[in-house]
Amino acid sequence: MQPTKQLMVQAKGVQKWYPNGFHVLRGVDLEVFRGEKVVIMGPSGSGKSTFLRTFNALEDYQEGSIVVDGMELNNDLRNIDAVRREVGMVFQQFNLFPHLSVLDNLLLAPTWVRKRKREDVIQQALSMLERVGISEQAYKFPGQLSGGQQQRVAIARALCMEPRLMLFDEPTSSLDPEKVREVLDVMRLLALDGMTMVVVTHEVAFAREVADRVILMDEGQVVEIAPPDQFFNHPKHERTQRFLAQIL
């Protein structure tokens, strides 16, 4: 066990208004520790994806503060670039680059951002593909893969930057039901390796098994934070009970 728990993400009183005036985040606090797995749940429109996307500055915020791995996300663009290099993200729509082969999708960031030679990272990329179980597809293009395979490539692509924190924004929501499992299996493996993970998902079984803490967000606020056992079996908050009654 670590002697002291190290903070990976510290969000304090984060507030965000959309340009149209909608108050999407209403003072959100969250601390994520190194090696911890946090699952964020909540109804659609609760601001959970928006909140997650503030962690690597894909969304800005107007009030409060977010510190990721010791770097504050403010208007300093160098900090934003530094944070993005250390934080991997997996999207609902995969967002693979369709004009590049699977292998080139993986190599793009290491060669251009880390400035490493292609020959030096190609082995790492191939072993990463093996890890997510699709090494035989390295020279295909994303359009030739199934949704589940594409999402596993997206995970491998993020891992090639050797991130310290992985963000998952509804990674299985646009998959056919039978493909969900292969993606969740990869995420389980990643969790076993000790990766710090923040996951927005509706997969209750995954949350029960993997999460250290589960969060319910509603209307731009954190309603409840609890270990999965307590969250799913003895939720304190009435809003959580209602939410669980609808999805379980």
């Binding site: 993005r84 934080v87 991997g88 993200m89 999207f91 729509q93 967002n95 793009l108 960031a109 997206a154």
Partner: peptide, 13 residues
């Protein structure tokens, strides 16, 4: 789609 830009920026490009 915007997602292409977001994916690229999230990789640090």
């Amino acid at each position: 789609p915007m997602g292409q830009q977001e994916a690229a920026r999230s990789l640090g490009l």
